[in-house]
């Protein structure tokens, strides 16, 4: 029986995950973080990306769009600004959103804020990635 950690994922609007997992991959702000039981206490900000953890021989994926991460002994708290389960994402629409975000970034419209366009593209990318994993 492998050691497990309690994983909690919530957005301001709802709780998405609350279960015991063997391991979890989290999109940290400065890169992907893999967390196993016994990890040292950690506080980090989250970037846009996919969070994944194994359940009954399969991996489950979530798109995470920014937030905070706290790792405690035996407990992981993921406070996402926004998050969706891979199954909930409409892949076609997510791809269309990504294309639109890319075009906007490429066109460099004078009124567009490049940082905002970039953030929009990152969010769209995270959603497409998560949806493709399902």
């Amino acid at each position: 029986m492998p050691e497990l950690i309690e994983l909690e994922v919530a957005t301001p609007e709802r709780q998405l995950v609350h279960e015991d997992v063997a391991e979890v991959q989290v999109p940290g702000k400065d890169g992907e973080l893999g967390i196993l039981p016994g990890h040292a206490p950690l506080l980090s900000e989250l970037g846009c990306g996919t969070l994944s953890y194994p359940v009954a021989g399969r991996r489950r994926y979530l798109a995470i769009l920014g937030g905070f991460l706290e790792v405690l002994p035996g407990h992981i708290r993921v406070l996402a600004d926004a998050a969706e389960r891979a199954e909930e994402i409409d892949l076609e629409r997510a791809r269309a959103d990504l294309r639109r975000a890319e075009e906007q970034l490429a066109s460099q419209a004078p009124d567009a804020d490049p940082a905002a366009s970039l953030a929009a593209m990152e969010r769209a990318q995270a959603r497409v990635l998560a949806a493709e994993q399902r």
Binding site: P12, D30, L43, S44, E45, F68
Partner: peptide, 27 residues
């Protein structure tokens, strides 16, 4: 105080957490 590893400086994290906390109070 647990011995946390901070991926970002604590003051910076506090600066990002506080507005979220206020938003949540309103919500």
């Amino acid at each position: 105080p647990a011995d946390f590893i901070f991926a970002q400086p604590p003051a910076e994290m506090l600066g990002r957490l506080l507005p979220r906390y206020v938003e949540m109070e309103f919500y």
